[in-house]
C-alpha cells in the first residue's frame, strides 16, 4: 500500500541520508552548518516515528538549535579573525583529505558488519522493557522515560550533569583572557529586542510546563533546560548583558546547583537505603525538586557554552574584583 506510514519512513530516511551527504560534502561551511540544523529537525520527526517523543523534543531544541548556534558562533568568530588576512566565507576543498583508501575501507567494514548484525535478526523482544515498565509505580512518576532517567538510572544522569559541568569548566579555561566581542553596537536591532522581550517570559513558562508535565507525558528537565538555554542564546545575541563569568557568585550557584541538589538528594536518602534510592512515598517530590534545579542549571550551562564558542565570554573588569 503506497500511502501507509512505511513509505513515509522510507522517504524520510532517504531525505536524512541525502541531507547528511549534502552537509558533509558542501564546500561552504556556512551551508554545511545550516543543512546540519535542517537535518536535526528531520531527525526529530524520525524520533516521533520510532515512538520517542521525549527525544524529539530534545533533538529539536538541543541537537538542531543549540548545536547549530554553537557552530555558527564558532564560524563567525573564526571568520572575523580571518578578516584581516582574507575575506569571504571559509571554504575547504572536500578532497583535501588525508587518508582516502583506508578510511573508505574501515567505514565500509564497520557499517557492513553493523548492517549484517541488524538484518540477521531484528525481531528480538528482550531488553529491559518488562523490568522497567512493570516497576513504574515504584518510581514515583508515570512517564517511563522520566522514571528511568531520574529514578532507575539516576546515577547515570547525575554523572552526566557532572560531564556538563566539566565541559563548562573546560570552556572557561579555554576562554581565559579573551577579549569579548562587543554586541552593543549602535545599530542594534529594535525588532530583535522586542521579539526577545516578548518571548522570554513565554519561554520560561513553557520550560516550567515541560518540567511539570514530564511526570506523565513527554517532557522533563533536559528539554526544559534546552529551552532556557535557547532563550539565553537569543538574549545574548540581542545585546543583553547576562552575568556569565564565575567571578560572580550567583553564576557559580546557578551552574553548580543542579549537580549539587542531585548529589544532596542522593546522599540524604542514605539513612537506611542505598545512594539515590528514593523512598517510594516521596519519590515524586524528590524527582520534581531535582528536575527544577537541573533545568535552571542546564539552561545556564548551555548559555555559557554558547557564549564561550561565540566569544561573548569575558572576565569582569578589574574594579569588580573576584
Amino acid at each position: 500500500m503506497l500511502l501507509d506510514g512505511l513509505s513515509f519512513d522510507l522517504l524520510l530516511s532517504i531525505a536524512l541520508i541525502a541531507l547528511a551527504t549534502a552537509a558533509l560534502r558542501a564546500r561552504d561551511l556556512f551551508k554545511s552548518i545550516v543543512i546540519f540544523m535542517l537535518f536535526g529537525l528531520l531527525v526529530a520527526i524520525a524520533w516521533v516515528r520510532v515512538h520517542a517523543p521525549d527525544l524529539a523534543l530534545a533533538e529539536a531544541a538541543i541537537g538542531s538549535g543549540i548545536t547549530g548556534a554553537l557552530f555558527l558562533g564558532a564560524l563567525n568568530r573564526i571568520e572575523r579573525k580571518r578578516k584581516g588576512a582574507a575575506s569571504g566565507r571559509l571554504e575547504n576543498p572536500v578532497n583535501g583529505s588525508t587518508s582516502g583508501a583506508w578510511a573508505v575501507l574501515l567505514t565500509l567494514v564497520l557499517t557492513g558488519l553493523l548492517a549484517m548484525a541488524v538484518l540477521s535478526g531484528w525481531s528480538y523482544s528482550g531488553g529491559l522493557a518488562d523490568e522497567a515498565l512493570s516497576r513504574i509505580d515504584e518510581s514515583g512518576v508515570v512517564n517511563p522515560v522520566t522514571a528511568v532517567i531520574l529514578n532507575f538510572r539516576a546515577y547515570d544522569t547525575l554523572l552526566e550533569i557532572g560531564v556538563l559541568l566539566l565541559a563548562v569548566l573546560g570552556v572557561y579555561a579555554v576562554c581565559e583572557g579573551q577579549t569579548m566581542r562587543d554586541l552593543r553596537r549602535r545599530d542594534r536591532s529594535k525588532v530583535l529586542e522586542t521579539f526577545v522581550h516578548l518571548l522570554s517570559p513565554m519561554v520560561v513558562l513553557t520550560a516550567g510546563y515541560l518540567v511539570w508535565v514530564g511526570y506523565k507525558e513527554p517532557g522533563g528537565a533536559f528539554q526544559a533546560g534546552a529551552l532556557l538555554g535557547g532563550a539565553g542564546v537569543v538574549l545574548l545575541l540581542s545585546g543583553r548583558e547576562l552575568p556569565l563569568h564565575t567571578a560572580r557568585t550567583v553564576v557559580r550557584i546557578i551552574l553548580g546547583g543542579g549537580f549539587l541538589v542531585f548529589l544532596l538528594a542522593g546522599l540524604l536518602v542514605m539513612k537506611d537505603r542505598a545512594f539515590l534510592e528514593y523512598p517510594r512515598a516521596s519519590a515524586k517530590h524528590i524527582i520534581l525538586i531535582i528536575e527544577l534545579a537541573c533545568t535552571v542549571s542546564i539552561g545556564a550551562i548551555l548559555t555559557v557554552l554558547f557564549s564561550g564558542c561565540a566569544n561573548l565570554l569575558a572576565a569582569p573588569s578589574e574594579e569588580e574584583g573576584p
Binding site: S189, V191, L192, F195, L198, L199
Partner: peptide, 10 residues
C-alpha cells in the same frame, strides 16, 4: 508567525 517575521527582518 512572530518568529518567522523577526528572522525575515533580521
Amino acid at each position: 508567525l512572530i518568529a518567522s517575521a523577526t528572522t525575515c527582518y533580521l
